[in-house]
Design a protein around this nucleic acid. Sequence first.
DNA 1: TATAAGTGTGAATCATGATTCACTTTATAG
DNA 2: CTATAAAGTGAATCATGATTCACACTTATA
Lengths: 212, 212
Amino acid sequence: MAYRPTEKTKARRAAQHEHLLRTALAIVAKEGFQGLTISAVAQEANVATGTLYKYFDSKAALCTEVFKLATEKEVNKVQQAAFPAPTSQPLPCRQRLINAITTFAQRAIQARKLAYALIAEPVDPMVDTQRLVYRQAYADIYSELIAEGIKAKEFPMQSPAVSSAALVGVIAETLIAPLGRDQQPPLDMEGEQKLINDIKQFCLRAVTGLPT
Amino acid sequence: MAYRPTEKTKARRAAQHEHLLRTALAIVAKEGFQGLTISAVAQEANVATGTLYKYFDSKAALCTEVFKLATEKEVNKVQQAAFPAPTSQPLPCRQRLINAITTFAQRAIQARKLAYALIAEPVDPMVDTQRLVYRQAYADIYSELIAEGIKAKEFPMQSPAVSSAALVGVIAETLIAPLGRDQQPPLDMEGEQKLINDIKQFCLRAVTGLPT
DNA sequence: TATAAGTGTGAATCATGATTCACTTTATAG
DNA sequence: CTATAAAGTGAATCATGATTCACACTTATA
């Protein structure tokens, strides 16, 4: 009689799903969540608006998936910086903290609009919930690193939960918020290095309790 | 011939303006900017929607005024904590920093919904611009205090602009963001003190570069 | 009291953008 | 080729909430 989904059609469906998702991500990276409308995605992806709804239950669902996609990659990079594959010569926590912050900062500056969208851009509450998860993912990395540093006596006693959230706040406010809001001219290379360095020093003092 | 505004009518107009503004503020304090709609304000204030437009050019203008009203009071309190009226025995910068942070934290916990609305709630871009001003007002206080502390050799060399923004970020992320998003049960008195203390320690280490 | 200007009204209108759905097209199995 | 299920279409519909405006009511001068 009839029709039955096959490997080929399943693959096509998955490919389309990915295509739409990446199109949406590109829009967010260029214009922020403000520019992420169903019709914009449809237009950019050369499909009709209705098609989007064959792949995503709602705009909220789409936003969530976009958020996840963007998040995973970024968080992974920072995770690797904080917890590198073990080598013969293990790095001290202090150095790994520096690496994590620098990695985050540099990637954020590279894709400032995206970083702003993920961290700070005002978005509707549905997406904001997802953002909480995202920030927590970062905080968890720092939290683990700080706990390790305390145990190793590298860092003084402190609440890893509070300190890690604080670090996320520092970075969000110093680095990302000013970048994204308006069209402030981008910093030159030199100013950028100085900014990252100032942030790094602040975070180090805060976590280590030592003058830098 | 004709009509001319008089003292009495001007006063009435000013009173009405204030009444509407305070009504709007009350809504924000209770429900956040999410609940701030023209019709909600009208209803609460017992006027028609059209009346709002006799007093405010647009919703954006109303939001801006609400923001300012709420802001000024809060910023003033912190300002006073950071720069108290000079006494015979001037306080060290370190202590004034502690006072400023504590003041902010306690007021935020008192009126958590309002604090969340002002600092972190996702709002439309028009209001977000105003928020930038608000955060900057806080940052300016810290910035001046830090600069003074550096000059007095209480604090090590650092960028006051970066450190002050970082402090705002710390407070926003650790204190306010977790409070406002969902309906997390409020902390008990003890947990609250511990949280404030952890934040205080973090900030002190960051600014002074000394173990606490 | 007559006239001009200001204030208040709230239903109607707009604007934006998500969501639906009747219909067309495409892919698969017999 | 034919029947069936899925994918794609896009104009029409909904939902939300800001904004307008023709009209009624008040207040201040002459």
